[in-house]
Design a binder for these strands. Sequence first.
DNA 1: TTCAAATATTACAAAATTGTAATGAAAAAG
DNA 2: CTTTTTCATTACAATTTTGTAATATTTGAA
Lengths: 223, 223
Amino acid sequence: MRNILLIEDDISLAKSLSGFLESEGFSVAHALGMTDGIELFEKENFECVLLDLSLDDGNGFSICSKIKSQSDTPVIFLTASADETCTVMGFEVGADDYIGKPFRPRELVARIKNAIRKHASQPLLQCSNVIIDTSRGVCRKNNREIFLSALEYRLLVLFFTNKGILLSREKIMDELWTFSGEFVGDSTLNVYIKRLRDKIEDDPANPQILKTIRGLGYKAVDE
Amino acid sequence: MRNILLIEDDISLAKSLSGFLESEGFSVAHALGMTDGIELFEKENFECVLLDLSLDDGNGFSICSKIKSQSDTPVIFLTASADETCTVMGFEVGADDYIGKPFRPRELVARIKNAIRKHASQPLLQCSNVIIDTSRGVCRKNNREIFLSALEYRLLVLFFTNKGILLSREKIMDELWTFSGEFVGDSTLNVYIKRLRDKIEDDPANPQILKTIRGLGYKAVDE
DNA sequence: TTCAAATATTACAAAATTGTAATGAAAAAG
DNA sequence: CTTTTTCATTACAATTTTGTAATATTTGAA
């Protein structure tokens, strides 16, 4: 998870970038050129592709087209040639973002997360044996429907669209309880988590899906 | 359409930007500050918001949060202070992109189009001024959230995914009330239609969205 | 270990949802 | 025009949801 494909022919740059991204919690696969890149892309599942524009054996534009023609995985150009024409061209071949050197590390991470988050909104959300069919507004566990209240549903959708990502209590409260101007006590969330677990977990006392990250928040994990 | 909201307190910059964007086929509404901006945003439907970071009567971050809390309209920061912390902060409050000065016009257009395109491909169901964001499980009317109960939500999703198509009472009942093995009386549907109309129609007595096709069923129409 | 903080669990009242039945109103058929 | 059918509207009780507070448990730190 948080699996990223980096296609970059400058080895030392690739090394330092990988190192940094891994320290930020991503796992990075590195390809040196177009051929490797496509091959890797088709073999594994990535949440985002970072793409250098100029490669020895092809250019970034064509890789991007190819990737976009077969999937929706976000593609971010990451390149020295940040001139305007290239940037426009990048977006034209379907890029999700285009970042010129010098990279500012925290910004880079913010943009990667942004791209991944945007991409996450798909019609079927799955986590272990629980599936939300957002095109019907229905939740199923082992193909058996479970009835969730409006807020329970929204909470679970929030978790599943951010599968594997830690959500702070504050962020969750913000997402769920801003519709009415009213403020809602902090303990409410504990109770909602409990109610969701009772409905979706095999053993609610030992949650395998909705994990508590003590002091930080919660996250949904797949197995 | 291609309607853009520009929130910028530098009048001369705003003028030249508007002019340029209009020459590119956008139609631009301009607000000078936070108050104006929010007001305009809630009144009209925009495809994208361009936001200056520093305003006289508030800062861009809080506007962005506010906008994002009530809709998914893309927000792009457009600002002189392109330092990294601000950029990261921008993404944290939900921005879709962050562009530092100097703006390169064609890149700006490319990024705006990119944001609009990404947004358009999101799982949004729309009918007239009512939008269901299935990726959040939320329904909005004129950008203001309306709370639907679990079954109301599912009924409306059913209608919106079949926009323009007639749904027989029988089909609707089958779709909605099969989760529990129980049977539900026929008049129940009348009541649910009424409740939905009360929530989503401008004039519930003269429904413009949920139409009755006497003897056959109902359908959702887009004016 | 002991303590404090964070989270889990339980129980409860207010509010909202849900389904039904009764009554009204509108449209089509005779 | 009258009747019949269909849908709209209202009112109502049973149930569920919702948020809170009180209590228990767990966790990590001292």
